[in-house]
Every structure is written in structure tokens, then in C-alpha cells.
């Protein structure tokens, strides 16, 4: 805590911390604790049976797997998009900038319907993919496609400002010191953007875990094969089984929270490593 006494910009650390806790409590913790309370109407055996049903297990696997895959794809291609946007000036660049944010703004149901139209067997992409023997719509691949779509802006928008901060001089300096382009990327650039990439990954991943609107259109919702966890929750609600719905939600919440916590720790570790490097 010694650090904070010198770096303080806003007055009243205690007050602002207190307010931050209060705000988080009101907006995040209170509603979530309501969720937990609702599940307490179930006995432990009922809870366990609900959350370990074969359909639930299949849905966890699909939701976490597809979200992870989508976030990974976005890390690779999001970095590429961010790089292009930062390092090059080209006609239509503003258009690309706006396109990147579009998945944020588009209602997810519209995204889902559009993607399904494109990827179904008679769609623009689907008919060619089908010929190659690759089915996308109504499979788990389709789920990952929808999640990739909605997650893209998170990676681009977190990596972009960091890339902007890295001067082109740094690359030139690396080159004058005899580094190959590959070395420059892996040893100089990549470590600097790794924390931002991790943040982007986390955001895209977390967003994907909770996504419902776009996925239900493209997934086909087949039990044990293409049901995502949010759909199971809706299914329970349709049966007026509030406790069952919250039980699954609680598992989802706990798993998401542990994963996000783990990624945040990883993020801090990579950040510290960056800080510790000479020259920073």
C-alpha cells in the first residue's frame, strides 16, 4: 500500500474504494446473490442431478469449447486487423474501423439469422462448404462461427491502443541491432502486446460464454449435440423451473468466474514480466 500514497491523483482513496465496492455490490453482487439464493430451494441431490445431467454436461463442453476456440481465432485475426489499422494508411481505413465495431452494435439475433442464412446448405458460403463436405450451420462449428463474429471487436479494440503506443523506431532499432523480422516480432513486439492480447482474449471469451441470441439460430439446438448452456437455462424457464434454471446458471457463473480470475492472474504475471524487462 506504500505505492498508493505517492501516486494518488484523486483525493480520498478510502472514499473512492468504498464507493467502488458499493457500486459493484449494487450492480453486480446483489443480483448475483439473488441467483444463489434461488438455487437454495433445491436439495443438494437435486442440484447435483440438475447440473450433471448428460445434456447439461454436453452443453458445458460445447459452450466452453466453442467460446475458447472463437476467442483464440479472434486473438490471431484480431491482432492482424489491429496491426493493419495501426501501421498502414489506406483508402477505406475509416470504413474498416467502423466495420470492426459493427458486431458490438448489431442485435445478436440479426447476426445469428444472417450467419445462418450464409452458412446453411443453400446459403452463399454454405453451398461451397457443403461441397467440400464441411457443414457449418446447425453444428458446433456454426456455434463457434457466431461466437467469433461477436467477439472480434474485443480483441481489436484492446490491442489497438497498445500497438499505437509502440513506435516504429523500436522495430528499426531492433533491425539495426541485427534482429530478423521474426525475432523483432517474437522478442520485441509480442511481449509488449501480450497483456493486451490476453485482455482481449478474456473479454471475447467471457462475452461468448453468455451469448444466446445469435447462437440459437445457427446451432439448431439439438440435445446433446448443439445445445449451449444459456439455451438450457431458457428451457428450464419455459418449464417454470426457476430453481433448475438458476442451478445451471450458478455452475456457469462459478466456472466463468474461476476462468476469468485465472486469466486475470496470468495477465498480471505477463504484465509484471514486461515491467521487469530492461528498458521499461
Amino acid at each position: 500500500m506504500a505505492v498508493s500514497s505517492r501516486r494518488r491523483v484523486l483525493p480520498g482513496f478510502r472514499l473512492s474504494l468504498g464507493f467502488a465496492w458499493f457500486y459493484l455490490g449494487l450492480i453486480v453482487l446483489l443480483p448475483l446473490s439473488g441467483l444463489f439464493l434461488r438455487t437454495f430451494t433445491l436439495t443438494w441431490a437435486q442440484f447435483w442431478e440438475t447440473v450433471t445431467a448428460p445434456r447439461a454436461l454436453a452443453a458445458y463442453q460445447l459452450t466452453f469449447g466453442a467460446s475458447f476456440a472463437a476467442a483464440l481465432v479472434n486473438v490471431v485475426f484480431g491482432l492482424l486487423v489491429a496491426w493493419v489499422l495501426v501501421r498502414y494508411r489506406f483508402p477505406g481505413r475509416d470504413l474498416v474501423e467502423a466495420l470492426v465495431d459493427l458486431p458490438f452494435a448489431l442485435p445478436t439475433a440479426v447476426a445469428g439469422l444472417t450467419l445462418t442464412t450464409l452458412f446453411s446448405a443453400n446459403g452463399w458460403y454454405g453451398r461451397y462448404l457443403e461441397a467440400l463436405g464441411l457443414e457449418v450451420a446447425y453444428t458446433s462449428v456454426g456455434v463457434a462461427v457466431a461466437l467469433t463474429f461477436i467477439g472480434l471487436p474485443f480483441v481489436v479494440r484492446t490491442v489497438q491502443p497498445v500497438l499505437e503506443d509502440i513506435d516504429a523506431d523500436v522495430e528499426e532499432a531492433a533491425a539495426t541491432l541485427g534482429a530478423t523480422p521474426w525475432q523483432t516480432f517474437t522478442r520485441v513486439l509480442f511481449p509488449s502486446i501480450l497483456p493486451a492480447l490476453l485482455s482481449g482474449f478474456t473479454l471475447a471469451f467471457a462475452r461468448a460464454l453468455g451469448e444466446y441470441g445469435s447462437v440459437v439460430f445457427i446451432s439448431g439446438n439439438m440435445p446433446l449435440r448443439t445445445e449451449i448452456v444459456p439455451l438450457l437455462i431458457i428451457t428450464r424457464l419455459e418449464q417454470y423451473d426457476y430453481a433448475g434454471a438458476t442451478a445451471i446458471a450458478v455452475v456457469m457463473l462459478a466456472a466463468s468466474f474461476s476462468l476469468l480470475l485465472a486469466v486475470n492472474l496470468l495477465h498480471r504475471w505477463s504484465h509484471r514480466r514486461l515491467e521487469a524487462r530492461p528498458g521499461h
Binding site: 439469422l113 445462418t116 442464412t117 446453411s120 446448405a121 443453400n122 446459403g123 450451420a137 446447425y138 440459437v216 439460430f217 439448431g220 439446438n221 439439438m222 440435445p223 439455451l231 431458457i234
Partner: peptide
């Protein structure tokens, strides 16, 4: 395919 609602199924049948 099991769409989540009736209109979804109609779309699947008619448009897809």
C-alpha cells in the same frame, strides 16, 4: 434442427 420457436422453424423451412 430444433429451432427455439415456431417462427424460427418456419424460417428454416421456407428460407433455408
Amino acid at each position: 434442427v430444433l429451432d427455439s420457436g415456431a417462427r424460427g422453424s418456419t424460417t428454416t423451412f421456407a428460407e433455408r
